[in-house]
Design a protein around this nucleic acid. Structure first.
Length: 370
RNA sequence: GGACAGGUGGCGGAGCGGUUAAACGCACCAGACUGUAAAUCUGGCGCUCCUUGCGGGCUACGGAGGUUCGAAUCCUCCCCUGUCCA
């Protein structure tokens, strides 16, 4: 994998880059739709491609439990299994350490889960997480980390961060022993919202050396300002010739703000999950498609949107599909929301390269202030 | 004409003397969702008043009377519905 920075915005931390992988090129800043279980819910790979997705995220923990990474490996790897030929980044299961916290026990060795599927015992260590992701054939593997919620005391945050850094080193070691090009591993910065812990975390990761660096443990309930501040602090500390990936974030506005703070890659369930829950993004804010006021609304979700859904379907129809719990509701809503996100990224890239990013930043902030 | 069964909030359907403005489901109205245990989850859902409180008042379980301190729950008559028998 190779990462090149094509242009640095002169007035912000925004970078226009390009990630070269063995499964194709990813223009950055990029948004990766989330396909946890080997599918971006409701979308075929062809549809994703048509919407402009270049790289997607999947999840080692979920595929490990079902159908099992060996199964996928035997069938030729995740790309072939799910029919997506573009790059895939896999999360290690570190997020499940957080989201399934009621079902797991954690120690320095690794994480014991009780499977959310059948209650059976499962164990994930940094080494296993690497092995699973190698078997899946991920282009970018993530180290297993301890994703901490918010708020967390300094002591908790420090202990958790130290554990994550130890795991990162073990992950790197394991990857170097049994993996290698063209696959790559990213380290994950932790440390909650404590600047000195974050600094130490970066230093440890950089010393270990990764192909890319992720910022983890954000978007877990902390105030927005703290999220932005934390990302901003990372900008000068992270190697400028490596991609930076902000994990799990966020709203369209978050994307713009964090690009301005030097982030190259994002993923988030928001466009896809919100779509299924009837929340649709537009340039003028969101609409909740189930509301009665759309009963006979002939307009598209968003006037002027160039997505295939807005080209053809009315709010009235989409409301009907949602209320009637029709499968097509999820498909069409997801199509629109993903288009919106991916189009936002296209716009971001365009502005960095040709118009100056601060202009887009200003427009976004003004829109948000209204 | 007769015998049973039954009429409860927008719908279905509990309740069968007080703790019932009435379980539960659906529908409806809102809200939440940030490396997906999520096509999920919360809340509201008779009217009304306010000093918004496990607050007050009013109306309500087919209709009209009655018994009772108290009735959706018991009694009488009436109206309506379903099934069966003539």
């Amino acid at each position: 994998m190779q990462f090149e920075v094509i242009k640095n915005d002169p007035h912000t931390g925004a970078r226009r880059g390009r990630l070269h992988t063995s499964h194709g090129i990813v223009e950055t800043p990029a948004f990766m739709p989330v396909g946890t279980q080997g599918t971006v819910k409701g979308m075929t790979p062809e549809q994703l491609r048509d919407l402009g997705a270049e790289m997607i995220l999947s999840n080692a923990y979920h595929l490990f439990l079902r159908p099992g990474h060996e199964v996928i490996s035997d069938l030729g790897g995740l790309h072939r299994f799910m029919g997506w030929s573009g790059p895939i980044l896999t999360d290690s299961g570190g997020y499940q350490v957080y989201s399934l916290s009621k079902l797991r026990k954690i120690d320095d060795d690794g994480v014991s889960f009780r499977s959310h599927l059948d209650g059976s015992a499962a164990f994930l260590s940094p080494e296993i997480a690497i092995d699973v992701q190698l078997a899946l054939g991920s282009d970018v593997l993530m180290v297993l980390d301890d994703c901490l919620g918010y708020p967390a005391s300094r002591q908790e945050a420090e202990q958790s961060m130290q554990r994550s850094m130890g795991w990162a080193e073990r992950s790197r070691k394991r990857f170097d022993e049994v993996g290698g090009e063209p696959q790559t591993v990213f380290g994950i910065v932790q440390g909650s919202v404590y600047p000195d812990l974050r600094r130490e975390s970066v230093a440890r990761l950089v010393e270990t050396a990764f192909e890319g660096y992720a910022i983890g443990g954000l978007g877990v309930g902390e105030p927005l300002a703290q999220m932005y501040d934390t990302v901003e602090q990372m900008d000068p500390l992270l190697p400028s010739d490596r991609p930076r990936y902000l994990m799990g974030v966020g709203t369209p506005e978050n994307l713009v703000e964090c690009v301005a703070r030097g982030v190259d890659m994002f993923d988030c369930v928001m466009p896809t999950r919100h779509a299924r829950n009837g929340w649709l993004f537009t340039r003028d804010g969101h609409i909740v498609i189930r509301h009665a006021k759309y009963l006979s609304d002939e307009r598209p979700i968003e006037e002027g949107c160039r997505c295939p859904v807005c080209a053809k379907y009315s709010r009235a129809y989409l409301r009907h599909l949602f209320i009637a719990k029709e499968i097509l509701s999820s498909v069409l809503n997801t199509t629109h929301n993903l288009f919106f996100y991916l189009d936002t990224m296209r716009k971001i890239r365009h502005f960095i390269e040709f118009e100056g990013f601060s202009e887009l930043l200003t427009v976004t902030r003004n829109a948000g202030a209204q």
